[in-house]
Amino acid sequence: MQTSIRVIATGAMLLTAWVAAVAPGAADDPPNDAPNADAAMASPAMEQLMRMADFLSQLGQFSVTLQSGYDVVQESGQKIEFGERRELVLVRPDRLQVDVERSDGQASRVIFDGESIGVFDATRNMYASSPMQGDIDASIRHFVKDLNMRLPLAMLFVTTLPEELEERVQQTAIVDTSMLDSKPFVHLAARTDGVDFQVWIPESGDPLPRRIVLTYKDEEGQPQYWANFSDWNLSPGPLATLMSFDVPDDATRIPFLAEIPASAMPSAATGEAK
């Protein structure tokens, strides 16, 4: 019985989605194709995913610890895992701090304090800073897209997360209910163009992700990025005052590679290994 209801709902959703797709504003998709707005939008799995997205995107502040790792498929075909631990503090509208400790011991910090975005490499005692006016959404986009800097799971920390998921997710499913830390978590699997991801969300209580796994399905060896979230704190305290970009006096200032004009580089760089 449940299956037939789902089939009817599928048909209704497809019809509605088709009407929505041919409306102005959706001109980027070919007419009568609505790949993003199929029955996945109304499925229980998508509801769970959006429950998490809505909650996360509306939080005024939070801090969390991420223990993460990712695969690198070597030229030999051997797959090696590297990892890192991140401590993230976010206070909307415009304070963000990420402390990173890589598995090889290198430590760094990313700070956005409302006026500039900077990265401090504690291991090498170097820092880069770039002026940035705007909110966290704008600064994250600038950091990742324009400065070509790395901020894993950046999409989880913007207020437009629900819209991002609605646009990208093509298919979702509830895999099972997993027991982690002796508590039940809903295990969701979603597919987007180029990336599949799975997320574990508490069955009850605040829908804060416990674990996320991204699979780069079109890349050789289908490497994955995974992160375990812990120590979620929705009241991290008055940390706005602590988020100023303090660097040691003897730290060297360096530019972001993306900000170096091409004119400053030699036109015929031979690039030989030394």
């Binding site: 993460s68 990712y70 894993p152 990336v195 780069y216 890349e219």
Partner: peptide, 9 residues
């Protein structure tokens, strides 16, 4: 590698 970015795209 491509997984290092932890990106959703």
């Amino acid at each position: 590698g491509p997984a290092r970015g932890g990106s959703f795209s």
